[in-house]
């Protein structure tokens, strides 16, 4: 049996896009937005591909939860080199707890030895799903990985913390979440893009996964953050010093 790596991903607005809040204050206005795989998840995809390149018989399955448009992003991961994809069809966005529950049922079906995912999504910054999932599966977890050295039994993982780089070992099966410095994701090659068109994207419904959504967090509102920066142009260094001393009282 091959060593299956499940890489759950999230579809998020392009990080360079200008985010505007919808009039009802409950979501972002997607009119001019393009979407990408959450950058931390793209790092997880890349790491899974690299593990596949250095180990025999690895299968990389990417997963996504969302509407049909999500298949563009799953296709991107397939073009990068993932073997197949699964989309769990939902209309409404799920909170992290329910995402973890859906993923736990996927793990039951696919039986991966490793779940590798981004440490958080850059849209809501919750950073909860990996941890919830490990708890639901009762698997060991290594979060915020900046280096993964895997072998047949498990992996030695470096984690960047405020105290320094922590090195831990987990045995398979395990959940590992990817931090920024783990790697730099590749671009898809021409053959990769062509091959991705033929790779399967399996579609599953919540009913097929026999899962009832249990909302635990209700979104009450969303508002834009003002940078609070104002800009003053001064003519010379003396004016700058005067301004910093008298107006800003910094000096």
């Amino acid at each position: 049996m091959s060593f299956l790596i499940l890489v759950p991903t999230k579809r998020v607005p392009d990080t360079d896009g200008v985010i505007r809040i919808r009039d009802d204050g409950l979501d972002v206005d997607t009119t001019h937005l393009s979407f990408v795989i959450n950058p931390f998840d793209a790092i997880a995809v890349e790491e899974a591909l690299r593990i596949g390149e250095r180990q025999d018989d690895v299968e990389v399955v990417v997963a996504g939860i969302g509407g049909e448009a999500y298949e563009d992003e799953l296709r991107t991961a397939l073009a990068m080199g993932a073997d197949r994809a699964v989309r769990v069809a939902t209309g409404e966005p799920l909170d992290p707890w329910n995402v973890a529950r859906v993923l736990a049922t996927l793990v039951d079906r696919l039986e991966p030895r490793m779940v590798l995912m981004g440490k958080q999504a850059v849209d809501d910054d919750a950073a909860q799903v990996g941890q919830f999932l490990a708890a639901l599966l009762d698997w060991p977890q290594a979060t915020f990985a900046s280096e993964i050295n895997d072998d047949s039994l498990g992996a030695v993982v470096s984690r960047e913390t405020d105290h320094g780089i922590e090195t831990v070992r987990v045995d398979w099966p395990a959940v590992i979440t990817a931090d920024l410095r783990l790697n730099e994701p590749r671009y898809a090659s021409l053959p990769g893009i062509l091959a991705a068109r033929k790779k399967p994207i399996e579609q599953l419904t919540l009913a097929e996964l026999e899962i009832e959504i249990e909302p635990r967090v209700e979104l009450l509102g969303l508002e834009a953050v003002s940078s609070g920066r104002t800009c003053t142009i001064v003519d010379n260094v003396d004016q700058l010093l005067t301004h910093l001393r008298d107006d800003e009282e910094i000096l």
Partner: peptide
Amino acid sequence: ALTVRADD
């Protein structure tokens, strides 16, 4: 803001 998809 014109960014590039990984499978462009």
